[in-house]
């Protein structure tokens, strides 16, 4: 609330409202949970990578997005062979590299690991949460999916003083075979493995998914492709051919920028795109959305978002803040058992 004047509504919350941490009436709880759990359990799919959603903004953006969708032109790079931009060169090289990797056999688990850094403002502090996530997505009914969150989590603050103790890692598990979410559509592994391997076909397929799964807020089409590509390249067990097609499809998007070496970790390449981002921290300002690639393997290694221009002058975070940053370890098929850190709580669904 407003810090400078007394809130006139302070103390008006009705006394008969339960306090936020009051427990539910045990009888009521038992009855509710009985009814709920009597329903068939829905397929539980997790976005393998948790990240802030891309929610670009406003009715103006809605109109713009509609105009873009209406005017979509699938540009085939081979018509007249236009000069390639440097972003295209980066992406096409990554496509060639990732495609040349040896095919891998499906194993017991699709294994992913990543670290996430999220920055936000809490009162007078800018706090950064750094935590790891590691998941084993089961390929069959014989194994359970296991997902571990909160690994080696730390909370730092600037200025120092708002650090707090964080609960240790926790794990969740549920029955396999895992289903995967691609562009808002949930599908079994065999459908993921059968995703298009040609950029034009992949683009058409994604456009169909976008139509079936409208975003909660208007999003520019380019931003939706980038969002879908992030999943295809980082967390879902796509084939090398589908990953290559993803890079080639991105290469056809307009407006992508090649990142300068000075912005990048040594030995990596990257592409970036400016977009509106809905959040309190940016006051719905403009951010730079970046995908960073290891050119030796063609793997996506990092994804980050940097505040370029706050929506209002009094945005909670300064220009240049890294709003979030994710580093991905190479994902792949493994036959070994999941490893849950000692002391982690395990919830089974």
């Amino acid at each position: 609330m407003n810090n400078t004047t007394r809130d006139p509504l302070a103390g008006t919350r009705p006394a008969f409202f339960p306090a936020p941490d009051d427990p539910a009436d045990p009888n009521r709880r038992e009855r509710d949970l009985r009814v709920i759990l009597a329903e068939p359990r829905p397929a539980r799919t997790r976005r393998a990578v948790r990240r802030p959603r891309l929610l670009p903004v406003t009715a103006v953006a809605a109109a713009a997005a509609a105009a873009i969708v209406a005017g979509v032109v699938v540009v085939d790079g081979d018509s007249g062979a236009p000069a390639r931009t440097s972003a295209q060169r980066v992406l096409l090289a990554a496509a060639d590299t990732v495609e040349s990797a040896a095919a891998t056999e499906v194993g017991r688990y699709w294994h992913t690991a990543s670290r996430h850094y999220n920055t936000s403002r809490q009162g007078e502090y800018v706090v950064t949460l750094d935590s790891g996530e590691e998941s084993w997505y089961s390929s069959s009914a014989a194994d359970q999916t296991v997902s571990v969150n909160g690994i080696d989590a730390t909370l730092r603050s600037q200025p120092p003083g708002a650090e707090s103790d964080l609960a240790g890692a926790w794990a969740q598990s549920w029955d396999g075979p895992e289903r995967f979410n691609v562009a808002g559509t949930t599908m079994p592994l065999d459908e993921v493995l059968a995703l298009p391997t040609e950029p034009a076909a992949l683009k058409s397929w994604l456009l169909e998914q976008f139509e079936q799964n409208p975003p909660e807020y208007p999003m520019e089409l380019t931003d939706r492709f980038l969002d879908a590509a992030l999943g295809l390249l980082s967390s879902v067990p796509t084939t090398a051919e589908t990953r290559a097609a993803t890079y080639r499809m991105l290469a056809e998007l307009p407006e992508l920028r090649t990142m300068d070496a000075s912005e990048l970790p040594a030995g990596t390449v990257g592409i970036a795109h400016e977009m509106r981002y809905i959040s309190e921290e940016t006051a719905n300002g403009l951010v730079d959305y970046q995908l960073i690639i290891d050119p030796d393997t063609g793997q996506l290694v990092e994804n980050q978002m940097i505040l370029l221009e706050p929506g209002t002058e009094d945005a909670p975070l300064p220009v240049g803040t890294i709003l979030y940053h994710v580093t991905f370890q190479p994902a792949g098929w493994v036959d070994t058992d999941p490893v849950v850190p000692e002391g982690a709580t395990v919830e089974t669904y």
């Binding site: 809130d7 509504l9 302070a10 008006t12 919350r13 807020y217 809905i278 959040s279 309190e280 006051a283």
Partner: peptide, 24 residues
């Protein structure tokens, strides 16, 4: 809008999510 914040303790961003509008 006022009761979402004063009575239910939501942040602006959370309240915006409830109402399906942007935080701004």
């Amino acid at each position: 809008a006022l009761t979402l914040i004063a009575w239910h303790g939501l942040t602006n961003r959370e309240a915006a999510e409830v109402l399906g509008c942007s935080t701004a």
